Computed example of a mutant assay.
Amino acid sequence: MKQVAQQEAEKARYLVEKAEQMKLAAITTAEGDAQASKLLAKAFSEAGDGLVELRKIEAAEDISKLLAKSKNVAYLPHDLNALMQLPQ
């Protein structure tokens, strides 16, 4: 019984240590996110809308690459009225 109690105590200590490590990891992640937010805010204030526009272009580029690889996408020219024959 003494050995079982000792094993249970060690298991409880392990669980407490694991929870403390998870807590520290969460704190570190939150601090990193906060620092990243501050850096982004500083970059936005310094660069103005240029950084936002760059991010939009990068996102559009990523989306276009994904769509180009898709077999279910058909490309139509922007200036072509593909539905000209439909009654309005």
Rank of each mutant, 00 (worst) to 15 (best):
M1G: 13
M1N: 10
Q3M: 04
V4N: 08
V4W: 09
A5Q: 10
Q6F: 11
Q6Y: 12
Q6R: 00
Q6W: 02
Q6K: 12
Q7D: 01
Q7K: 00
Q7N: 13
E8A: 08
A9H: 08
K11Y: 06
K11V: 11
A12C: 08
A12N: 14
R13K: 10
R13S: 01
Y14F: 09
Y14M: 04
L15I: 01
V16F: 11
V16I: 15
V16P: 07
E17K: 07
E17H: 00
K18R: 11
K18V: 12
E20M: 04
E20S: 06
E20C: 09
E20Q: 12
E20H: 05
Q21K: 14
Q21L: 14
M22E: 14
M22P: 13
K23L: 05
L24E: 05
L24A: 03
L24H: 10
A25R: 08
A26E: 00
T29S: 15
A30F: 02
E31I: 00
E31K: 08
G32F: 03
G32M: 14
D33S: 14
D33I: 13
D33F: 05
D33K: 11
A34G: 00
A34N: 11
Q35A: 13
A36R: 03
A36P: 06
S37C: 15
K38D: 09
L39F: 12
L39K: 13
A41K: 06
A41M: 14
K42Y: 12
A43I: 07
A43W: 05
A43Q: 10
F44R: 05
S45I: 14
S45H: 14
S45C: 12
S45A: 14
S45M: 14
E46Q: 04
E46C: 03
E46T: 04
A47K: 00
G48H: 09
G48W: 07
G48D: 04
D49R: 12
D49M: 02
G50T: 01
G50E: 03
G50M: 08
G50Q: 11
L51S: 10
L51P: 07
L51E: 05
L51R: 09
V52I: 05
E53W: 07
E53S: 11
L54H: 08
L54N: 09
R55Q: 10
R55C: 05
K56T: 00
K56N: 04
K56R: 02
I57V: 09
I57G: 04
E58K: 12
A59C: 08
A59T: 01
A59S: 01
E61N: 09
I63Q: 07
I63K: 12
S64V: 12
S64R: 10
S64I: 11
K65D: 06
K65V: 08
L66P: 10
L67H: 01
L67V: 09
A68G: 06
K69T: 07
S70M: 01
S70N: 08
N72V: 04
N72G: 07
V73W: 05
V73E: 02
V73F: 02
A74V: 15
A74N: 15
A74D: 14
A74K: 15
Y75A: 05
Y75M: 14
L76P: 01
P77S: 07
H78D: 12
H78S: 10
D79K: 07
L80F: 13
L80K: 07
L80W: 00
L80I: 11
N81F: 06
N81I: 04
N81W: 10
N81V: 07
A82G: 06
L83D: 04
M84S: 15
M84E: 14
Q85D: 14
L86T: 04
Q88C: 03
